Simulated assay, not measured.
Amino acid sequence: MNDDNEESEMARRLARAEAAVADLAKSYVGWASADVEKCGGQLATARETVAEARAAAVQELYAVAHNIKGQGTSFGFPLMTRIGNSLCRLTRGKRPFSDNELNVVQSHLDALSLVLAQGIRGDGGALGEKLAQRLEAMVTEILGPEAAPESDPVR
């Protein structure tokens, strides 16, 4: 193959990949909403158990939240990624979770649901920034300032 044919083939492959991502993006809100609902189910399970047994349900929630965090920006919803990151920071530890901490988890799920219901693409502007900062501040208040936002290891 000569250079022109190779470039042409690369361009066709890139166009097919971009089309596939665009098709997936059309379904993003639906499956992201389902993921938020799964998190809500795990939160309900955590609330129904004694504090010492909550960690397992919260770890299940973390696994789904990690997907939400990882996919948002890819499909044009970086605010989902930011809120998902904050939720992951809060839920990644294996520890008992207080009722207050579970309330903060609920606040994150409410925010994620709002972003999806309103179709808020991008960073959400000034209101998105204010919402994300408030959630991040709540997590920092619980975990302390040493729990850096960018330190979320993939499990």
Rank of each mutant, 00 (worst) to 15 (best):
A51C: 14
A51H: 11
E52C: 12
E52M: 15
E52N: 15
A53F: 15
R54M: 12
A55L: 10
A55E: 13
A56G: 12
V58A: 07
Q59T: 04
Q59N: 13
Q59A: 15
E60G: 12
E60A: 13
L61A: 08
L61E: 00
L61N: 02
Y62K: 07
Y62N: 15
Y62M: 05
A63V: 10
A63L: 04
A63E: 10
V64R: 00
V64D: 06
A65Y: 01
H66P: 08
H66L: 09
N67G: 14
N67M: 12
I68R: 02
K69T: 03
K69S: 04
G70N: 01
G70A: 11
G70H: 07
G70S: 08
S74Q: 09
S74C: 05
S74A: 13
F75N: 05
G76S: 03
F77Q: 01
F77V: 01
P78T: 05
L79I: 14
T81R: 03
T81P: 00
R82E: 13
R82N: 11
I83Q: 00
I83C: 08
G84C: 08
N85R: 12
S86H: 04
L87Q: 10
C88R: 03
R89Q: 14
L90V: 10
L90I: 06
T91N: 12
T91K: 10
T91S: 14
R92M: 14
R92I: 11
